[in-house]
Design a protein around this nucleic acid. Sequence first.
DNA 1: CGTAAAATTGAGCTGTCTCAATCAATGTGG
DNA 2: CCACATTGATTGAGACAGCTCAATTTTACG
Lengths: 227, 227
Amino acid sequence: MRGLGLCCVLIEAGLDQLRPNGQTPVSQSPEKVPARRTIFRGNEDMDTVPVLCEGWAASIANLPNGRQQILSFILPGEFVSSALIFQPVLHYAVISITELCYRNFDRMELRKSLLAHPDMFEAIVSSVVNEKRQTDQLAIDLGQRTAQGRVARLILNLWNRLSTRGMVRGRSFDFPLRQTHIADAIGITPVHVSNVLGEFRRSGVIEIADRSLKIADLERLQRLAEQ
Amino acid sequence: MRGLGLCCVLIEAGLDQLRPNGQTPVSQSPEKVPARRTIFRGNEDMDTVPVLCEGWAASIANLPNGRQQILSFILPGEFVSSALIFQPVLHYAVISITELCYRNFDRMELRKSLLAHPDMFEAIVSSVVNEKRQTDQLAIDLGQRTAQGRVARLILNLWNRLSTRGMVRGRSFDFPLRQTHIADAIGITPVHVSNVLGEFRRSGVIEIADRSLKIADLERLQRLAEQ
DNA sequence: CGTAAAATTGAGCTGTCTCAATCAATGTGG
DNA sequence: CCACATTGATTGAGACAGCTCAATTTTACG
């Protein structure tokens, strides 16, 4: 494990431009978490940088009025928050969606090897920038698109991200989200999520069964995503 | 100017933890732009990093369907996009709101001095992280808040950011935004912006005159911002 | 197997939108 | 510096997307 830990995870993370030749930081042993738990509370001081190894998680903002907004779904290989590499504060809560496993890396150790390995530095930077772009895209969707457009884009977004990780089977993939997750992610009611997914299903755009989603009509889904 | 350029701008940027003792990168001469122009088109390759010196700008996403979302208002001293320091692509368009002035820094030169000056590195990193937090906050507002909450929060947000730059007079400040800017920023119609601002004005929460905004009842505005 | 959580469906309501008309402010050329 | 043209703001009426509340069915889980 020593000297391999981060390397593996970062390559899993799709950061394959990274090929460290020297020592790399090691993680503590992996942590397992059951589905549907709060892993981190939000506004916590953290001196480690957690990376998801298996399962799905979400980062989520809890508002004083009881509402909540999911800011991102976290997929295997991704940092829980790449900002943690640079600042020791986790701003939002993190919940597990499925059963999952993550590893903690020591931030100080990580930062040292960042400066030592330029390609690692680039890999991390591009992960920070990607995270920012995803959030920009979320804001655009929430500000300008209809419920149907948002649902369609969420599905396509997950499909694309899972594709690059080899986690799809053609146009089908594991889809562990509850409709409440979707609702909190795209800013509409669970009831309305059900309506929209119902339309999509009845009109033959998608098929959902056994926590698995199939894109039955990609073109139509893409057209819906323009709304 | 030589050796002073970036230093000044970065201190203007509120990054006052920065106190470089050696050489610092220099900017090209400042560019002036009239109000209401497109400064950058979006999806452009850029090998400079622009920093706003005077005036207000906004970064804005143009959707194929004609709609647009303002992702951030850019105030004097701020980077147009801090991601540009690390990647040579500007993802979204930038428009001038008022007449303004900005400076271009050479990215390569900037990066070199980043690595040479650790406190400069920290300053830049915290500006990247701040930008991310602002976007997260935008997504939360768009996903979970009513029109009134969004308008109230936008006003408070601008007031806070201008305060740290000494650009307020008590609870009044220059407010060059048109209602269409507000509409595009918070994802509602210009018509509805007018309605909400009208309510706020009639109920004595704010006063607007001569492109200047006064927070007349801060507590009430903060309560409205909870919605 | 039983209980809790999630999804579906329906009825009625409301916040925000669209369209449109009017009025005020801002900018421009003669 | 005025007259006109353009852009921005206000107001109203009607429409609709998405919400709330609630009842029922289905699925998941200990």
